[in-house]
Design a protein around this nucleic acid. Structure first.
Lengths: 221, 221, 221, 221
DNA sequence: AATGAATGAGTATTCATTCAT
DNA sequence: AATGAATGAATACTCATTCAT
């Protein structure tokens, strides 16, 4: 019901509408307290509206969570699509993905944290959908790694599936380690992670220039 | 009160006492539903006892969680201590740690998952203690990596702290990817992870001995 | 939360709002069963609302008790203030206080009973506040008695503090003896009490050997 | 059941048996927390025995309270009886009673406090019995006062019943004001109270305007 | 006498959700 | 759109009491 009447966010500039306010407030609160421990009251307080009024914007608490996930899905698949359409080599794709995906996590800490910690509170079709997307994502990364192997840049013995798990795991957890007030900007950390990931995948081959992808590479190029 | 009268678990063998039953049931349920969403009623049902009766064994829901954490702490520090006392080289230590720590996660899926996902529901002193231990653990791993650098086996430019985060993150999340009914036994996956970790740390040096990552190969080389 | 949104009682006349209904019901029930033995369910039943709904009006059971005390404080200090500002002699003040305070007890049996029997169930700052007010009250009465002595109307040997205790005690307990269906109206009893109190304080004036039975009397005898 | 098997306390000297220990512990705890708020666990802890074991000594929580009251009844009626059998004049009887009854309260603070604050938690026959005794006591004191009037020592207009209420009230509440660590010994305070009481009852003798207690009388005097 | 596990009913409190205004 | 009162089911926790050992 609320779903259909929800007006599109005034995309352009300043005015952020209530729909978005509610979503943003929920992201922050579900992240901070955990979905189960957070209450609709908390969200209402944060938006500055009475608990009952929130139901003009959402259908249920779970619906609110699901809506957050929809947004995250859009963003993450847009990112993945952009990389695949840039005509890069396999190694470049892997590096770009590692960097951009890390960066997305660092720039969307709360959203990213929810995306990977609270999905079990979805039910029914929505849960299945999330699990499906997760699986697709893993498969896409495994494919990238296999592409790197096909290019001869990675150990043929490397298990692409486990490597994909490993990489996605490490990035997913970024949001739980990273402090916004730390010394390094997100871009730096994203690059470091990308270096480590590419280094791990491409290591150990008697290669000439074994994909250094380090923060100094630009100077050499 | 329950604290003092809590009988030690009958270490020997067969007979598992109620204390342990309660802990094990709680681990399973807190893992499956999440601590906040799980109810004491769930645990009581699982143990086959009335809700109120559970309070013979615990002081509170949070106390139950804390007790689970105590057990996990004991196990994890025992493991870490054993590695440090075996007189290994830095690289061997890193590999042993990566393998054993991965293995512990795989063999204690639920416990490990709780350990890394539900600590924020502890409060006060117990929360501080957990954060302290987490910090100590990170520092110990960073030290291992610095030792590897000191042995000349890793890129001197490698940021040991970020690498430690990366490694611990990846392992911590093992429990959320691993399926007990998957094709590979825990030991295999643990070794693969150890190889990837050591490979990542030791990669990219113009070395002839590029860490092929089987536990015995070093002796041959 | 309830604290801020609590609407003022519709002072005018007929319409009594729910806030007040809740308070009145609680006064009656806490008095009849005792605070500790009374349940929120009892209050809810009396108001004709579900247990959970009560929490729109109160923050907690203790908050409900505290709110009752606030009202009693207001009334009692208003009464005391009125007496002090009427420009009476010391004896007149003592009599007026004794009468009015007795009357307040008789006209607010349940409220008065709570005020003097259940304060120990308050905690923290609220408890301290009540104890402070109690102390202030005792001091004010002792001052009145000393004023009577200064006017030469009371035995100079009278211990004002004990007399104040004695008087307040007797009045406080009025609510536990008085039956609303007794033969005498509250005004009569209040006057009788005032007479006894003034008589006690002012007695023995102009008597030669007034009070035997004092710890010094033996020496005289 | 426990009632019959309860062994008499070893009256003579040192050894205090468990029965008595339980009663004494209960008096202290019921006084400190209030009967309703106190738990059997509290009493058991104080005695140093497990909760379940307490039921060797008592039949129920209410039974424990009732047993405390029985003891108090015995003591108070023994005291009253002793006074009536000493062949004193009415005024002497009134003074002796006031002193001894005050003293009993001061020397049995907790017991006395229970006796007057927690009787409403008794039920059935036991409640009726307590109310009956209370009534008898009031009547006995009123009789004393009437005797004083008959001796010509008190204002004939004095309402003996209200005076009795007043006196008993003041004494009953002694236990809530008195601090064991205060400056004056119980004997002193008991005497002061006796003085005040006798003074109050016997005052105003020989006065033409016998304190008729209209608020304007002072101006005439 | 004493234990300690277990019960079952009860307690205060929370909360997602509804709905008349 | 928003309110705020109300619901009803659930939640963590307590406690007097019982009973086999």
């Amino acid at each position: 019901m609320a779903t259909e009447t929800r007006p599109a966010s005034t995309a352009g500039g300043g005015r952020r509408n209530r729909q978005d306010e509610v979503l943003l407030a929920a992201i922050e609160i579900f992240h901070r307290k955990g979905y189960a421990a957070a209450s609709i009251q908390d969200v209402a307080d944060s938006v500055g509206v009475l608990k009952g009024s929130l139901y003009h914007y959402i259908d249920s608490k779970e619906d609110l969570l699901a809506r957050i996930f929809e947004g995250s899905d859009e963003q993450s698949f847009a990112m993945m699509g952009a990389i695949e359409n840039r005509g890069l080599t396999a190694v470049e794709r892997l590096e770009a993905f590692s960097r951009d995906w890390s960066l997305w996590h660092l720039n969307n800490l709360e959203r990213a944290s929810l995306y990977f910690n609270e999905w079990r509170h979805l039910t029914g079709e929505r849960l299945e959908q999330v699990l499906q997307k997760r699986h697709d994502y893993e498969a896409a990364v495994a494919r990238m790694i296999n592409d790197v192997k096909a290019e001869g840049q990675a150990d043929p013995d490397l298990d692409a599936r486990y490597a994909a798990f490993y990489i996605l795991s490490a990035i997913n957890v970024l949001s739980s380690w990273y402090r916004r007030d730390g010394p390094d900007p997100p871009e730096h950390i994203a690059q470091v992670y990308a270096d480590m990931i590419v280094g791990m995948v491409c290591n150990s081959r008697g290669r000439k220039k074994p994909r250094k992808a380090s923060r100094k590479k630009k100077t050499a190029a």
